[in-house]
Design a protein around this nucleic acid. Structure first.
Length: 494
RNA sequence: CGGGAUGUAGCGUAGCCCGGUCAUCGCGCCUGGUUUGGGACCAGGAGAUCGCAAGUUCGAAUCUUGCCAUCCCGACCA
């Protein structure tokens, strides 16, 4: 097996190769759609489990709504349909038949649907059509639902995990009696996402608000978490929307308050997708392959025996199994790879490619000395440790590695974040050194559009208070010189 | 969807310009043996209607046209 492309030579080739070689996903026969392979799915499942627990802790329940949405639903909220119309797949027929000329099957023209169905690009509309039936009184509120689902957006250019036509995600949809409560929900979920990104994915994020141009179609406000990838580009890792009464009005969802007056319900929606897999890869991995934070690694410790002659097999296997039992006792996911069909060197390279955090190798020398060779993936360093110390060492080390991976990503972001005051400087610097740029902006969509046209950079977010040092002071817009309340984050983005 | 490139075995490739024993090589795969402290070695073997479809021709991987897919650059986007 040859080496991966290097990040410095061709970042996107490196990304594409790592996804395939680490056995995460591959392209399918269907344009823009991916096959998520078992190892990739195992990582996604770990993300799901952690998030799902966090949603439940914050009072949410799971539900499931249909894949297909009546076409008429989508058009009820004007800006929503405008945002999604260009990328919808449509079901028009419900039957196939044999072609008269025997060439296969064709769509039966007799079986045309009365009303065409849209494959969901997101589920606000179908969910709010149900909420209309579920909500009459303030006593029915709040409704706090989440669903794990697939959605489809007919993208022009796709990349595995980062942008696929079909992707897996979760979408939360909540309904509230007051604007205040809905806004709090929006912020709570943003916080859940930020904690998940930082504690589980080990990716530092900036919490912020989107500018009007970048807002979700149908939302009053879109909050987001923005992460930096190793090529200095930004990736939106999660969004939480305050929907105001937009969908309640579109679907006529009213409730009677304590005072007996009817009012429209306030809504939120929030989601993260398999795109997080892309974020995970691009935030941490290196030229040797994946680097997984221990909290997400399907295999946290792999144990590899190094055989030497027939007589060494039984005792080495026994020692490996002894270590595996210890790991299980400690709640560490472990795999013993005692195949004699692959050489130790092959296995080393393989598990490095797959990002297994810790590798323990042991041969006859170790058996005699009572040691194992311990390799950690994040630093690519080896040391010999007494087997008896593993019980103490492994949990400690996994925890430490989780922190190290996070700190490395944070240091990278800090090293690639710049403050800039002149638009000419910005235009030059964004070419020379990709990263986050903190600059003053006059708050108008026109200026934002101009920056985007001229530099391909966008306003990633207006950071929430306390997110970044020294950006809260007022100043003047770097483009127009008009007043600005504080600095915003600009970057080129995925 | 606009501009560019590519498509030959599971993967990476040679051949294409100058149609005709050219389907080449490496990895991987299978069998047997020797091995195992950083992607082992030797011997033997299997595997390809040269992306798909039409056309030109006595003859097409090679020339022409259309389509499909992938990658890069734009527009769009989680």
């Amino acid at each position: 097996m040859s080496k991966l492309p290097k990040r410095a030579d061709d970042y996107s080739a490196w990304y594409n190769e790592i996804v395939k070689r680490a056995d995460l996903a591959e392209n399918s026969p269907v344009r823009g759609c991916m096959v998520i392979k078992p190892y990739g799915m195992a990582i996604w499942e770990k993300m799901q489990r952690t998030l799902d627990d966090m949603f439940k802790e914050t009072g949410h329940y799971n539900a499931y709504f249909p894949l297909l949405i009546p076409k008429s639903f989508l058009s009820k909220e004007a800006s929503h349909v405008e945002g999604f119309a260009k990328e919808c797949a449509v079901v028009t027929h419900y039957r196939l038949k044999n072609a008269p000329d025997g060439s296969g099957v064709i769509v039966d023209p007799e079986a045309r649907l009365e009303e065409e169905l849209i494959i969901r690009p997101t589920s606000e509309t179908i969910i709010w059509s149900s909420y209309k039936n579920w909500i009459q009184s303030y006593r029915d509120l709040p409704i706090l639902l989440n669903q794990w689902a697939n959605v489809m957006r007919w993208e022009m250019r796709t990349r595995l995990f980062l942008r696929t036509a079909e992707f897996l995600w979760q979408e939360g949809h909540t309904a509230h009696a007051t604007a205040q409560e809905a806004i709090e929900e929006t912020r709570t979920m943003l916080d859940v996402y930020a904690r998940f990104a930082e504690e589980t994915l080990a990716i530092p994020v900036i919490r912020g608000v989107k500018s009007a141009n970048e807002r979700f179609a149908g939302a009053e406000d879109t909050y987001c978490i923005e992460a930096m990838m190793q090529d200095g580009k930004a990736l939106q890792a999660g969004t939480s929307h305050f929907l105001g009464q937009n969908f309640a009005k579109a679907f006529d969802v009213k409730f009677a308050g304590k005072d007996g007056k009817l009012d429209y319900v306030w809504g939120t929606s929030w989601g993260v997708s398999t795109r997080l897999m892309g974020a995970l890869i691009m935030a941490h991995s290196d030229d040797n392959g994946l680097v997984l934070p221990p909290n997400l690694a399907p295999i946290q410790v792999v144990v590899v025996p190094i055989f030497k002659g027939e007589d060494s097999v039984a005792p080495l296997k026994e020692a490996c199994n002894r270590i595996a039992r210890l790991c299980k006792k400690l709640g560490i996911s472990v795999k013993v790879d005692d195949r004699d069909t692959q050489s130790p060197g092959w296995k080393f390279a393989e598990y490095e490619l797959k990002g297994v955090p810790i590798r323990l190798a042991l041969g006859l020398r170790d058996l005699e000395a009572g040691t194992v060779e311990l390799f950690r993936r994040d630093t690519m360093s080896k040391q010999s440790v007494p087997e008896l110390q593993l019980e103490e060492l492994l949990p400690e080390l996994l925890e430490q590695m989780q922190r190290t991976v996070y700190e490395k990503a944070l240091a990278f972001r800090q090293a690639n974040t710049y403050t800039v005051d002149s638009y000419d400087d910005f235009k030059r610097l964004i070419e020379e050194q990709p990263g986050f740029y903190l600059a003053h902006w006059d708050g108008t969509p026109e200026t934002e559009e101009r920056i985007k046209q001229e530099t391909k950079a966008t306003i990633r977010c207006i950071p929430l208070p306390g997110q970044l040092e020294g950006i809260a002071e007022p100043g003047t817009c770097m483009v127009t010189g008009k007043p600005s309340q504080g600095r915003v984050v600009l970057a080129r983005a995925y």
